[in-house]
């Protein structure tokens, strides 16, 4: 059984008298341990697909099985719980809480998973060490560079032992050198720790870090192929 199984997923929004179809029947399986890049021009529906995959949004029709569980009809709170336990997010804009130290940012997913405070701190410190921020645990986000902030976000995404990491344009706000660092970190997470990574990007050189590249055009899968490194 695949980690992610999408069948006939559609998403449409009401627009005046008609329905605007963003996704037109997506069928997609992603295996455990895979590293997938989703590419597509803006307006192709890749962000919508990403939101549905990330359990932030519900499809209009179709079925979504995540880690053996049907999720397309769950309530908002149940989805929050799935996101908390199964998914780690890395965003383009980092999305760290301001005026909150790196350590406390990384602790956040565990706060909502009811992990006791002492254990939270220990695990957050370990995760920050792994991404190379041991020395900057008590820094506030505005005291960190973009690359460092993104590494804090990655630590936050992995700290709850979530099997899937969603990265939405993770290098969009970073320069080339930092982008390489971040992509190497993702590769390491995929290869060494077996985390499944789903990456949304529009840059070819970033997509080439992935094992598999899916191209979305006009709400449909246009191509889905192995990436030969």
């Amino acid at each position: 059984m695949s980690l992610i199984e999408l069948k006939h997923i559609t998403k449409s929004y009401p627009l005046e008298d008609t329905q605007l179809k963003i996704l037109k029947g997506i069928n997609l399986n992603i295996e455990k341990g895979d590293f997938v890049a989703i590419m597509g021009p803006s307006g192709s529906g890749k962000s919508t697909l990403m939101n549905i995959l990330g359990c932030l949004d519900k499809p209009t029709s179709g079925t979504y099985v995540l880690d053996g569980q049907r999720v397309e009809n769950l309530s908002a709170d149940e989805l929050a719980d799935i996101r908390n336990r199964k998914i780690g997010f890395v965003f383009q804009g980092f999305n760290l809480l301001s005026r909150t130290s790196a350590l406390e940012n990384v602790e956040l997913p565990m706060v909502y998973a009811n992990v006791p405070a002492a254990q939270r701190e220990e695990r957050a410190k370990k995760a920050l060490t792994k991404v190379g921020l041991r020395e900057r645990m008590y820094h506030m986000p505005n005291q960190l560079s973009g690359g460092q902030q993104q590494r804090v976000a990655i630590a936050r995404a992995v700290v709850n032992e979530a099997p899937i990491i969603f990265a939405d344009e993770p290098t969009g706000n970073l320069d080339t050198k930092m982008s390489v660092e971040i992509m190497n970190l993702f590769t390491k997470l995929n290869e060494d720790l077996g985390r499944t990574i789903i990456l949304v990007t529009h840059e070819d050189d970033i997509a080439h870090y992935a094992k598999r590249i899916i191209r979305i055009v006009d709400g449909e899968i246009h191509s889905d192929e192995k990436n030969e490194k």
């Binding site: 929050a80 908390n84 999305n95 909502y112």
Partner: peptide, 16 residues
């Protein structure tokens, strides 16, 4: 709003 969005994405439920 953004803080609330981050907390929700990370797993905060309505009552949290």
């Amino acid at each position: 709003t953004r803080e609330i969005g981050i907390r929700m994405a990370i797993g905060a439920k309505a009552w949290d």
